[in-house]
């Protein structure tokens, strides 16, 4: 998408007036649609639609051995697939850089034990642990991927059910796990502190959140902040463009404010989803 100067000026003025081209103010998000538990074979899944961005996240769980340097911890890994369905630009290896960037930021945001406690995933110290495979599929790309992906991941983790282990038998070097026979015997993951990412875009002299594709074009620099409670778990600048230290501070403030609000809204919505609603995508 390329804009002419007049269009850019229009967007710029709109942002300055705190009235963006789609009627939002600078801190406003576009409507978000979310549903969970939609993939049969996954332990937890979620689909999120933010304007034209469509994300499907599924969590698979497998048994693994913990890393020798972290014997008390389980593992989590993020895989992002930018399929060519989303935009033709992703064809072949086109989406690879973006996919790597997304999975790296997610890994970095979930790294701190305060955001997501991997110790809960340990089954037997140094021998057995759960490994979470978080597969993120980008179905449609309409801008603001970072925010959408982080929300979808959090929703999918919220939805994830870890099988309950009744007993562990150790026989020499062999470890036997006795998983509960009842499918409904499972634990939920604690995602209250899981980070939510907010992209803050500097347009003109102001910062906005949730930029659409046109606004992304006008931005002179943007940062992604991952907010866990009121703390920052990852901040990174994205795209070309530099910021003054002052601007960076104000965008951090904005990001934090919006992030906290977004997190509250998400947690509230997730707690209201009941399992018997069987309508929507893939159902």
């Amino acid at each position: 998408m390329s804009l002419c100067d007049a269009e850019k000026t229009f967007i710029l003025h709109g942002v300055a007036e705190n009235f963006r081209s789609d009627g939002r103010d600078r801190e406003g998000y576009r409507p978000i649609e979310i549903e969970t538990d939609i993939v049969q074979h996954a332990f937890g899944s979620a689909r999120l639609r933010l304007a034209n961005t469509d994300i499907l996240v599924a969590v698979k769980i497998e048994v693994d051995t913990p890393l020798p340097e972290r014997p008390f911890e389980g593992k989590i890994e993020f895989f992002v697939d930018c399929s060519a369905n989303a935009t033709p630009d992703f064809e072949g290896r086109g989406g690879e850089t973006l996919a790597i960037e997304l999975s790296n930021i997610l890994a970095s945001a979930y790294k701190s034990p305060k955001t997501f406690n991997l110790k809960k995933l340990c089954i037997l110290k140094g021998k057995k642990c759960w490994k979470l495979y978080v597969d993120i599929l980008i179905l449609e790309c309409g801008g603001n991927l970072f925010d959408a992906v982080s929300l979808a991941v959090k929703a999918a983790l919220f939805n994830t059910k870890v099988p309950l282990i009744k007993s562990v038998n150790i026989d020499g070097d062999n470890v036997e796990l006795d998983v509960s026979d009842n499918v409904f015997d499972c634990e939920r993951l604690d995602v209250t502190n899981a980070p939510v990412m907010v992209t803050v875009c500097k347009i003109g002299d102001n910062c906005v959140v949730d930029p659409n594709l046109a606004e992304e074009q006008c931005s002179v620099g943007s940062i992604v902040v991952a907010i866990s409670q009121e703390y920052f778990s990852t901040v990174t600048s994205i795209g070309i463009g530099s910021l003054h230290a002052q601007t960076l501070c104000s965008s951090l403030e904005l990001g934090q404010k919006v992030g906290i609000r977004l997190n509250e809204a998400l947690m509230d919505t997730l707690s209201h989803i009941t399992s018997d609603q069987d309508f929507g995508f893939l159902k």
Binding site: A109, I223, E230, T234, T236, Q256
Partner: peptide, 18 residues
């Protein structure tokens, strides 16, 4: 006086970050 790149990880509050 421009910051052309910024990266943080871990768990840090706004004041400490600033």
């Amino acid at each position: 006086e421009q910051l052309c790149q910024f990266y943080q990880n871990g768990y840090v509050s706004l004041e400490v970050l600033k």
